[in-house]
């Protein structure tokens, strides 16, 4: 029987979490899993906190994930990882991009961005992986590929054949951006 895997992808509106979850879901389907994913459109996209769920298994019913039930939280941003870590299972895996994006209350000085998030999380959870995807994306000359770098990272962690992902990327991105995205995927896969 196939293992059931619940992945929560969290980030900030505009970071491209939707594309990552959709490619992940399509690859899982190709592998023969039942798949459900939940997205929130509308208000959340205006720079707000964005959450998508990807669940795969022999048969998946609910498209959403509750507190303490996620196998993996894939955080595109530190504060968002910190906000949603409670959704991780006790022995779950936190994969975090160590990028910081200030929310409006911090920008206008009404709140402080929490300190030492990665330290706190590595202390609390046995399984944590940190990746500096924004710097890697800058190396590639395009900060928008953070999502594909994160996809590469999760592909490696899930030990899924990378060619399946490359194929899915080919279908999802416009031809002129294909080489950049493939490169970004491999960067996440190998780093």
């Amino acid at each position: 029987m196939m293992k059931e895997i619940s992945i929560m992808i969290v980030g900030v509106g505009g970071q491209g979490t939707l594309l990552t979850s959709r490619i992940l879901g399509n690859v899982a389907m190709e592998l023969g899993y039942d798949v459900k994913m939940s997205e929130i459109h509308g208000m959340a996209q205006r720079g707000g906190s964005v959450v998508t769920y990807v669940k795969m298994g022999e048969k998946v019913y609910s498209p959403i994930i509750e507190e303490q039930t996620a196998d993996i939280v894939l955080a595109f941003e530190e504060l968002e990882g910190f906000r949603w870590h409670k959704y991780l299972k006790k022995d779950g895996l936190m994969v975090m991009n160590t990028q910081k994006i200030d929310p409006m209350p911090v920008i206008i000085g009404r709140a402080k961005y929490p300190e030492q998030i990665s330290e706190k999380l590595s202390e609390a959870y046995n399984n944590t992986v940190f990746i500096n995807a924004i710097d890697l994306a800058r190396e590639l000359g395009n900060v928008k590929v953070v999502n594909v770098i994160m996809l590469g990272k999760i592909a490696k962690i899930l030990e899924i054949d990378k060619d399946l992902f490359i194929k899915a990327i080919e279908q999802a991105v416009p031809p002129k951006l294909l080489d950049l995205n493939k490169e970004a995927f491999m960067m996440g896969y190998t780093n």
Partner: peptide, 16 residues
Amino acid sequence: IKIETTEVPVRPPVMC
């Protein structure tokens, strides 16, 4: 739950 995260600032949607 292992870390108290009561002081996480909200991230409301904003005008772009």
